[in-house]
Design a protein around this nucleic acid. Structure first.
Length: 299
DNA sequence: TTGGCGTCCTGGAGGC
DNA sequence: TGCCTCCAGGACGCCA
């Protein structure tokens, strides 16, 4: 499930390949990809335009086109973008080689002027795409996408300000894209473990040291994801059709019952905000409990 | 204003 | 073996 590291991995791979290329034709095979906009309209808007560059905002991939338009894409749960030769039946490559299987989940094809093709496939069909005037992108995301966690703006002060007065669990806080953009279920679990913070702790109960730990936890988890080329626990493949390796480096996510790498306590799974949440009950202590423990220490 | 829940959507796992 | 049910989760709308 593509989160910030997966989308950024794809962006870094595609940007040098696509910049300057012209989209000869966009063919939308699944109208749900563009709804509520008519897919033919999107095809007309995008076909024939030159690609000026690729950007990322949160989990959105932004393809800047000439004519001051931007194609906005979201991969959601199972979306993949794959760059291949036109007509190539290959949809995946791994350490064992090519897997020549016709892609039954293909939703859209971009025919490029260099004979290659950018394919969007999506098993669960949650992915979406739409075109905006480039000048209107920030306005479209205003209020919907918060601070970029890998930017200099993501400070302890910012986290404290965003969390002030909120009683929602820290896990929900991290998943709220309108406050922190790009963190999803996987990296929220990993970040909270790194910060030694319990996922059910109220966001507003953080003090400065907790916010600093959370900042480092989030950034550390995202950087680990980037280093691993993303996590392939569902259908995620990068733009070259390769699996990421981050799933092998998970510290707590999907590790229920396994010993915590820090203290050895068995990892637990609970449901927070309707999402599977993995944490260590031994070293990720609730903030209120932590305060109580400190008070007892002072005695 | 905030937080929780349902919805969309389909593949895969597990049970019978 | 085949069928059925449940689960997974990102974004958004709705409701309390």
């Amino acid at each position: 499930m593509p989160e910030l590291p997966e989308v950024e991995t794809i962006r870094r791979q595609l940007e040098p390949e696509l910049r300057g290329r012209r989209i000869e034709q966009l063919e939308v095979l699944d109208p749900r990809w563009t709804r509520p906009v008519d897919p033919r309209r999107l095809e007309q808007e995008v076909s024939g335009r030159q690609i000026l560059g690729l950007r990322r905002r949160g989990k959105y991939l932004l393809m800047d086109l000439d004519g001051e338009l931007t194609l906005v894409m979201h991969l959601r749960m199972t979306g993949n973008l794959l760059l291949v030769e036109q007509g190539d039946p290959v949809v995946a490559v791994d350490e064992e080689g090519f897997e020549p299987v016709a892609d039954r989940h293909l939703r859209a094809r971009f025919e490029l002027d260099d004979g290659r093709e950018l394919r969007f496939s999506d098993a669960r069909r949650f992915g979406e795409a739409f075109v905006l005037p480039s000048a209107g992108v920030e306005e479209r995301f205003a209020g919907r996408l918060g601070v970029e966690p890998l930017s200099g703006q993501f400070s302890a002060e910012t986290i404290l300000a965003l969390a002030a007065g909120r009683s929602a669990p820290l896990k929900s806080f991290l998943l709220d894209q309108s406050r922190i953009a790009g963190v999803g279920n996987i990296y929220a679990d990993e970040a909270l473990w790194r910060a030694e913070l319990h996922p059910l702790s109220p966001a507003g109960s953080m003090r400065r040291e907790h916010a600093e730990a959370l900042r480092e936890g989030v950034r550390g988890a995202l950087r680990a994801g980037l280093d691993g080329g993303g996590a392939s626990i569902d259908d995620y493949l990068d733009a070259r059709g390769r699996r990421g390796t981050m799933q092998d480096e998970f510290l707590v996510h999907t590790r229920e019952g396994e010993p915590c790498p820090r203290c050895g306590t068995a990892i637990r799974r609970i449901v927070v905000a309707g999402r599977s949440t993995y944490f260590c009950p031994g070293c990720q202590v609730r903030l209120r409990r932590r305060r109580r423990a400190r008070q007892e220490d002072r005695r």
